[in-house]
């Protein structure tokens, strides 16, 4: 298919611009088709459901803007879940970014056994989520968990109640999220391979120290993947679900401190038979995500450096 595209007589596609349009569309064709086949119907259906009473079991019934109205005027849990999710995003996102980049930089050093290290940092990603949930409950158990035991042994600090204390539950899951940076690290590492060695050599000759080299060579060169991980991280934080769900078996204990937006959405959709309501929540989340990532993209013009432009 592609070969034919380029073989089109040059005469027909007189200008580079015309050729670009045809090629651009041809290369993007699978995805455009995919969008039409697998996305358009489900996405617009869910938009329609958001204006309906829809239990899944029976056909949706038109309800106007009632779902949206109820969300904002008569749903404490909804407001609570927004607060929890923003709290999580506000801390987990920047923390994850700095942590992920730092680990990637460490793993990018030419030290012995770096392949072993890289594998190790990826390990938590491979452990099944249900298993991780139970593990964290053990580690963070205030009475007998390892964490508080070590805090006492090394610093003589009586550790907090972590996951069983509403005030500490969110910080706990934010800490837990740092174990999951493995995926982002793999991407950073791939990005780091694209930084030409010559740049480092040149910087070193100029007398730049390690920190300056990171600051002026490495980081600018991986800004495209940083942007990627930021956007994906933002979407992930807004839709944060699995760990908190497994730890609390879905009910957001203690005292709803771990009831995140996507958990409440899921509860509405599949536990309480309120798919219409859940869809309204989903579309609000969608809007919030679109606006925040648009802002990120706009700002990226100032800080993302693309070698290809």
């Amino acid at each position: 298919m592609m070969a034919e595209a380029s073989a089109l007589p040059r005469r027909l596609l007189r200008t580079q611009r015309q050729r670009n349009i045809v090629n651009g569309l041809l290369f993007a064709a699978p995805w455009i088709l995919g969008l039409l086949l697998f996305y358009v119907y489900p996405i617009f259906s869910s938009l329609y459901y958001s204006f309906c009473d829809y239990s899944i079991l029976q056909a949706p019934k038109w309800a106007g803007i009632r779902n949206y109205l109820t969300l904002f005027t008569n749903d404490e849990k909804f407001i609570k879940s927004i607060y929890n999710t923003l709290y999580y995003a506000f801390f987990a996102l920047p923390l994850g970014l700095v942590w992920g980049v730092s680990i990637a930089l460490l793993l990018n050093m030419k030290v012995k056994g770096v392949s072993v290290y890289r594998t190790i940092y990826f390990l938590p990603v491979l452990v099944p989520d249900v298993a991780l949930g139970i593990l964290w409950l053990w580690v963070f158990n205030p009475q007998l968990g390892i964490l508080n035991a070590l805090l006492w042994k090394w610093f003589h600090i009586v550790g907090p109640g972590w996951l069983s204390d509403p005030a500490w539950a969110k910080p706990s899951v934010i800490i837990i999220s740092l174990w999951g940076v493995g995926q982002a690290v793999v991407i950073y590492l791939a990005g780091l391979q694209d930084v030409p060695q010559e740049l480092y050599d040149a910087a070193e000759v100029d007398g730049a120290n390690a920190w300056q080299r990171i600051r002026n060579v490495t980081i600018p060169m991986i800004t495209p993947v940083i942007l990627f991980n930021l956007i994906i991280g933002l979407i992930g934080a807004f839709q944060y679900f699995t760990t908190a769900y497994v730890i609390t078996t879905g009910d957001g204990r203690p005292a709803l401190s771990l009831m995140f937006y996507a958990m409440y959405l899921y509860q509405n959709a599949f536990v309480l038979y309120k798919m219409g309501y859940a869809s309204a929540m989903a579309w609000l989340l969608f809007l919030a995500a679109v606006i925040s990532s648009y802002a990120l993209f706009r700002s990226s013009a100032r800080w993302v450096y693309y070698g290809g432009q």
Partner: peptide, 18 residues
């Protein structure tokens, strides 16, 4: 990028129907 922003939970059913 926007297609990733709609939580998948609400498209499961219509996708299944499709």
């Amino acid at each position: 990028v926007a297609t990733m922003m709609l939580p998948y939970q609400v498209t499961i059913i219509p996708l299944f129907v499709q």
